[in-house]
Design a protein around this nucleic acid. Structure first.
Length: 278
DNA sequence: CATATGTCCTGAGAGC
DNA sequence: TGCTCTCAGGACATAT
């Protein structure tokens, strides 16, 4: 499940296309239900043809390919990934961006489950259509004061709050469990009731874990879905302390067993011994 | 307004 | 072995 570290890795992996000219955009025919693409592919093709890629950026868990005062916005959601011509299989390639040049290259949007989306927006539309009312500050650039204030303003369980992209953008189910474990906060703690020192600890763990996960090029889970731009797996999964480790010994205290609970229909993993209820 | 729930999708793995 | 069923969860639409 691509979260901030995985999406950041995708961005870094395709950043070498900056300066290249887009020749065409195509949707390979496949037997699966088409993913959501807006506007229509012919329109996207028309608007991007012969435009030069000026920048690659990340907005929360989206990859943005900027070209000609527009951005092609790829949202991987559950099983999507953005690569340089590589894919686990040819069957789930949902979009192909062909680039000009001596070493012609392609950016592929591969998505097994097809929950991902593709959108082409003018730069002036991005804020209104993507950010406003939906995306909070990025988890890697939010200030501690803002982070603390936002946690204080919600009565939800901290684990559920961390998944809310308008509270802070970029955290998903996996890293939420990991950062709460390292910060030694019980996932069911009401966000507003977390003490200031613990909030500070969580803030630091959030940055630390996300940055470290980026260094490891993200987490590739058992289904092997997420890969970097060259189709190689990440390696942060080897650093997971609690995620998907139910019933195993806690690596932090070596005494408790990791427990799986469900919060807001999502799995949460934690160590009851390390992460005491308040 | 804040928060909760249903929905989309495919394939891995469980269970029989 | 082969079938059916459940589950995984990001983010939006809709409901409370």
């Amino acid at each position: 499940m691509p979260e901030l570290p995985e999406v950041e890795t995708m961005c870094r992996g395709i950043r070498s296309i900056v300066g290249r000219k887009i020749v065409s955009v195509a949707k390979p025919r496949c037997r699966y239900r088409p993913i959501h693409i807006h506007p229509s592919l012919p329109t996207i093709r028309k608007r991007l043809a012969n435009q030069r890629v000026t920048q690659i950026s990340r907005l929360g868990k989206r990859v943005l390919i900027h070209a000609g005062s527009q951005a092609l916005i790829l949202q991987p959601k559950m099983t999507g990934m953005v690569t340089l011509g590589q894919a686990p299989d040819p069957d789930h390639i949902r979009l192909r961006v062909d680039l000009a040049g001596s070493s012609s290259q392609q950016v592929l949007f591969w998505d097994r489950r097809g929950l991902g989306t593709v959108e082409l927006l003018r730069e002036s539309e991005i804020h209104e259509r993507i950010v406003a009312g939906r995306l909070g500050p990025d988890a890697l650039s939010i200030s501690y004061a803002d982070f603390a204030a936002r946690l204080s303003a919600t009565k939800r369980a901290i684990k559920v709050a961390l998944l809310d992209q308008k509270l802070v953008a970029g955290i998903g189910n996996l890293y939420a469990s990991e950062m709460l474990h390292v910060a030694r906060i019980h996932p069911a703690t009401v966000a507003a009731k977390i003490s200031a020192p613990k909030k500070r600890r969580l803030f630091e763990c959030m940055q630390d874990i996300l940055l470290t996960a980026i260094e490891y090029e993200g987490s590739t889970l058992a289904d092997g879905t997420y890969r970097n731009a060259l189709n190689d797996p990440g390696s942060y999964q080897n650093q997971h302390l609690v995620y998907d480790r139910a019933k195993l010994d806690c690596p932090s205290c070596a005494q408790g067993k990791i427990v799986r609970i469900v919060q807001a229909q999502r799995s949460t993993f934690y160590c009851p011994r390390c992460q005491l209820s308040r």
